[in-house]
């Protein structure tokens, strides 16, 4: 009996301890963002919103964020569309060398991110596409394509293919069955795949750093540059805004589509 109590206490202690480790830096960043002092100080001696006003002073932050948003939105949409066909083919149709093909489609997440940037910049220079917004977007698409493939395959294996036969027996042709039965079933996989692709692309630094020049820049690059050159808590204010926006989006999407459960497991 006491052994069971010790076990439960240890799991609870270690578990919540690790959760605290996970939350602590983020919570502290939020606290520091309201700090009045120029230097990072914990706990803050006085509070102010000055650093939120100072966000605008991060070099080109507005246009860089817009570029990141545009590239992440369009890139994630395109890879999600490409992934629909690929996932259907993988789950439903006989394909030669399916295991190898699937491994190939999922492999970009396993190669060093920097390698994708290095390989692409040389190639895009040859194609005369380097340092353009679409060249940058292509780089991000290579990195994130695996995510919607993975979530769509997961959501398709969960669901019962005989419902499409049922639709056919009730008078739906192939396209109507796809639109009225298959696509609604894929919605959670589509949404979470798009969300993953979008967030990973929006946040990417190691590929972007090779593919931007001159006026073309992204949010993570400017944030990184600001952090490495300044010590004031402006990035903390920016981070707080960022975390709030991302949390709101995820909580809303989770309420409706249960994306978290799709990301559990492989």
């Amino acid at each position: 009996m006491s052994e069971g109590r010790i076990y439960r206490a240890v799991v609870t202690l270690l578990g919540w301890g690790a959760v605290a480790f996970l939350i602590f830096p983020v919570a502290l960043t939020m606290l520091v963002s309201f700090n009045e002092s120029f230097f990072i100080q914990v706990p803050p001696a006085a509070y102010s919103l000055d650093w939120y006003r100072n966000i605008g002073n991060i070099h080109e932050i507005a246009s860089a964020t817009l570029t990141s948003l545009g590239i992440a939105t369009l890139g994630a949409t395109l890879v999600t569309l490409l992934a629909i066909g690929a996932a259907i083919a993988i789950v439903r149709y006989p394909l030669p060398g399916k295991a190898a093909l699937t491994a190939f489609l999922l492999s970009p997440v396993a190669v060093p991110v920097v390698a994708i940037g290095i390989a692409l910049v040389q190639y895009l220079i040859i194609l005369d596409m380097a340092f353009t917004w679409y060249g940058l977007m292509i780089g991000h698409m290579v990195l994130v394509a695996a995510y919607p493939v993975r979530t769509l395959v997961a959501s398709m294996t969960l669901y019962n293919p005989s419902i499409e036969d049922a639709a056919a027996s009730l008078g739906a042709n192939r396209w109507v069955a796809f639109l009225t039965v298959t696509l609604p079933q894929l919605k959670p996989g589509l949404i979470s795949g798009f969300l993953f692709a979008f967030l990973i692309s929006f946040d990417n630094y190691p590929i972007s750093v090779f593919l931007v020049r001159g006026g073309l820049t992204t949010m993570p690059i400017e944030l990184f540059n600001y952090i490495s050159q300044n010590f004031d808590p402006t990035p903390a204010a920016f981070s707080t805004v960022y975390i709030f926006v991302v949390s709101a989006v995820i909580i809303l999407v989770e309420r409706r589509y249960k994306v978290v459960s799709l990301s559990v497991g492989r």
């Binding site: 019962n160 005989s162 419902i163 049922a166 639709a167 056919a168 027996s169 739906a172 609604p184």
Partner: peptide
């Protein structure tokens, strides 16, 4: 005739109800 033109009612073993 393809399945959707045969006008056959089919009850599947697992019922295949549309979950959405």
């Amino acid at each position: 005739l393809p399945p959707h033109r045969r006008n056959v009612g089919l009850v599947f073993q697992d019922y295949a109800l549309f979950p959405h």
